[in-house]
């Protein structure tokens, strides 16, 4: 009660003791939640022998080393430095292409009258939720016939097509919230549809475009299944694809795997940290996709 008087607003939870317990428990669970991340990081920066003998949590002996990182980045079979480059080569166009194309479509959905718009929209929602597994076999043979199997371009095309439905869904909602008066003013001033789109809509929708791009990039970067099915050449593999192959046949080398894991998640973590607001806004759109 005294605490309530001090805090200026009656608490729902009640006694200060309960609040204290709640805070302690929440923080304990919170720290526990990221322990695997801490563990994998600690393992990655010390010799694996040390980790096996003393545990990654042990403060002594502590011999910091970058050997695991060097081993992973310049692995003779699956060089993660190559993997990172490949991931970028795939992810950048696989972000720009679908965002550009889906922006057009989304604008059409938001503003043009279309006889079967509702059905088309439901179809888009449906396509967002269909498992990747449902389309990969024909795609495999299609790319094979087009001689695009095991190429960057093939994978980029697949990722782009796969990204269009959810980005359309996301941007359509975004465009619908933009004030239509500005577009109408531009039309009255004599702008064509494309001019309205390029000069008025896109600049206004920039935050939405960034959100969609950030999420699509993270999604493509994190993807494993498409790459696994469509790329075989170790020189062209993306980083997520190489990672499980570092495991080794009989003995799991956690030294190598831990540094590999850190390397593979660095890009999405950075994007999450740098574009946090855009990321979280896009996440709700992406979350629909699964």
């Amino acid at each position: 009660m005294r605490r309530a008087l001090r805090s200026g607003r009656p608490g729902l939870i009640g006694s200060p003791f309960k609040i204290l317990v709640l805070n302690v428990v929440a923080w304990a669970v919170g720290v526990l939640w990221i322990t695997p991340f801490i563990g994998i990081f600690m393992t990655s920066i010390r010799p694996f022998r040390e980790v096996v003998l003393h545990g990654w949590w042990s403060p002594v002996p502590f011999t910091p080393t970058l050997k695991n990182y060097v081993d992973a980045l310049f692995n003779p079979m699956f060089s993660l430095s190559r993997g990172i480059i490949n991931s970028f080569i795939i992810a950048v166009p696989s972000t720009l292409i679908p965002v550009g194309i889906a922006a057009l479509t989304a604008y059409g959905f938001a503003r043009f009258s279309l006889p079967v718009k509702r059905y088309l929209f439901v179809t888009i929602l449906f396509l967002m939720a269909v498992p990747q597994q449902m389309m990969i076999i024909p795609i495999f043979f299609l790319l094979k016939d087009l001689h695009l199997l095991n190429t960057y371009l093939g994978l980029i095309l697949v990722h782009s097509s796969w990204g269009i439905p959810w980005i359309t869904f996301f941007l359509k909602n975004y465009f619908s919230l933009l004030p239509v008066e500005l577009e109408e003013a531009a039309r009255v001033d004599g702008a064509t549809d494309f001019q309205v789109f390029r000069k008025v809509v896109l600049p206004l929708a920039l935050p939405g475009l960034i959100s969609a791009s950030v999420l699509q990039f993270a999604w493509v970067w994190n993807d494993f299944f498409f790459a696994l099915m469509l790329i075989f050449d170790p020189d062209k593999m993306v980083v997520t694809q190489m990672l499980p192959r570092l495991k080794g046949q009989y003995q799991v080398d956690w030294g190598l795997l831990s540094s590999g894991s850190v390397i593979a998640m660095l890009a999405p973590l950075l994007i999450y940290a740098l574009f946090n607001r855009y990321y979280m806004r896009g996440f709700r759109g992406w979350a629909m996709k699964g």
Binding site: A4, L5, S7, G8, R9, P10
Partner: peptide, 12 residues
């Protein structure tokens, strides 16, 4: 002021 009377807010 109304919220203070209701008890949703506590005066300083």
């Amino acid at each position: 002021l109304l919220r203070i009377i209701a008890g949703l807010e506590i005066p300083t």
